[in-house]
């Protein structure tokens, strides 16, 4: 009984108390309408897009200003990474060519008739860990589409997805050539990936239930093809620049050009 009191006295001290990334912003820039689009008829439930009458959205993402200096990556935490890459390494937030900004995820955010159905691809999207970097750095896939995660490095990686809506996962890949597959059950833009072994490694995936997305490539160019006629909200996302949206209306077989401009910050 008193031992309890004693213990209580000793332990009273211990036991008794026991998106926005800025920049970018949202801009609503109505697309200049050179010609009145034919008003699309409402799609019947479960309809597939009539690709023969579909239109396209093409465009370019531009970086306004001088790209900020990239951060130096010290890979000396893992001798294998040092061996696998050549020369000094830096982050690659701003890959700019001819004023065009790469690695911007562009997608149809709104306006798509929900009655359309799109087959889920069985071909997996792929992400590889090579040279202690993720390849690709930004990409998109469909809800339910398999994502094949591969480790091409002769060192250990863990791939750790940190979604807000989907299920978080953290998978270890200790052996070179290992592959694992994962699927996402819900739309989410963007899901960050990181490697907790190599703190500099990160990637982003946009998960959508339709096929209208693209990642700007070299020169900042992108294309969203085979869109049914209609008015859409198009969003562009960049890991440092944030998001921008524009509205665009396309008619049957029409191609509209869009330009997104991110300011160098």
């Amino acid at each position: 009984m008193h031992a309890r009191k004693l213990l209580a006295l000793v332990s009273v001290v211990m036991l008794g108390i026991a998106g926005a990334c800025g920049g970018g912003g949202t801009t609503e820039t109505p697309s200049p309408e050179s010609a009145a689009p034919s008003s699309p008829a409402a799609a019947p439930e479960g309809a597939k897009v009539d690709e023969s009458n579909a239109g396209n959205v093409t465009g370019k993402v531009v970086l306004d200003g001088t790209p900020p200096k990239e951060d130096v990556i010290k890979m000396n935490a893992d001798p294998v990474c040092m061996r696998e890459v050549k020369g000094p390494q830096t982050t690659e937030y701003y890959i700019v060519d001819d004023g065009g900004l790469a690695n911007v995820f562009v997608y149809v955010k709104g306006g798509l008739d929900t009655k359309y159905v799109f087959e889920t691809p069985t071909e997996p999207a792929k992400i590889d860990q090579k040279g202690c970097r993720y390849h690709p750095h930004v990409f998109g896939l469909r809800v339910g589409q398999p994502l094949e995660i591969m480790n091409s490095d002769p060192t250990l990686h863990n791939i750790h997805a940190v979604p807000k809506v989907n299920q978080e996962f953290n998978t270890g890949q200790p052996i070179q050539g290992m592959k694992t597959t994962h699927t996402f059950s819900t739309e989410e833009v963007m899901v960050p990936f990181k490697c907790d072994v190599h703190g500099w490694m990160n990637a982003y995936v946009g998960v959508l239930n339709h096929p209208y997305f693209a990642v700007s490539g070299k020169g900042g160019k992108f294309e969203l093809n085979k869109l049914p006629a209609g008015t859409y909200t198009i969003e562009a996302w960049h890991e440092k620049g944030g998001t921008q949206t524009q509205s665009v209306t396309i008619g049957a077989k029409e191609t509209k050009d869009l330009a997104f401009t991110f300011k160098a910050s």
Partner: peptide, 28 residues
């Protein structure tokens, strides 16, 4: 920020804790 550098527990990348190779103790 290395709390999840070893995703499994009580094993470490499938190894018994004390048999995990020292050469693989890199980064986080």
């Amino acid at each position: 920020g290395s709390g999840l550098a070893v995703p499994d527990w009580p094993t470490s990348y499938g190894y018994f804790m004390f048999s995990f190779p020292l050469s693989k103790m890199v980064g986080g």
